[in-house]
Amino acid sequence: MGEVIVITSGKGGVGKTTTSANVGTALSLIGKKVVLIDTDIGLRNLDVVLGLENRIVYDVVDVVEKKCRPNQAMIKDKRFDGLYLIPAAQTRDKNAVTPEQMRELCDSLKNEFDYVIIDCPAGIEQGFKNAISGASKALVVTTPEVSAVRDADRIIGLLEANEIRDIKLIVNRLRVDMVKKGDMMNVDDILDILAVGLIGVVPDDEDIITSTNRGEPAVTNEKSKAGAAYRNIAKRITGEDVPIMDLSGDNAFVAAIKKIFGVKQ
């Protein structure tokens, strides 16, 4: 029996879709069978980020309206076995789907897949309600900004009200140089407010922009720091114990030596 995980944030532009694409791809890279569902009906993006836009024939609305079978709407990824996408409809709106229909779809998919990952739209209206209805776990994405953290807090409250207890936090787009100077909230400040478990910290990385534009998730790029962070998040989702990456720029060996000699980082 698979797990249904919703990736949400409340605020727009913090990286829900990027996170969905990368976590999904990373899970498939470690041999899991994954289906991604884009629930941002009318403003779909996940297909573009994965480079699968031109393969769409049926979408999630067609599935819930029973115009096609779920398997017909699933697009198999062109690079990775075991990764599938059910795209959102673009010419419809959020009201084309109900929470009950989404729950039914998720329930049928989790028999077949290890992970069903739901990319949630921004906001707390119909689209959000649809996205969370079938989920048993949530990954909340936030950036180190007061506004994004405020919205994440609101979202966590709503998730708890909807009986989703397993909530983990991803801090996205962290800039270590700014944190060091005290110009940006650090991870501890954020955890202090939100009081949920941290599952990963993703550094701000220019590679994300190029990889998004090219339709190739950053996790496939060995050199990308953000990609490495997403690979670690995927491992933690599977239950593996991976320490949170040290983002200070020093490698672990140098850091260990500095520690021995009592050099302050």
Binding site: G42, L43, R44, E53, Q90, T91
Partner: peptide, 22 residues
Amino acid sequence: SGQLLESEGNLVVIGDVNPGSE
């Protein structure tokens, strides 16, 4: 993007058809 233009017969568009539209 997001717009759907349909015709029961032939169709002439004087303009562009952007990605995400149909």
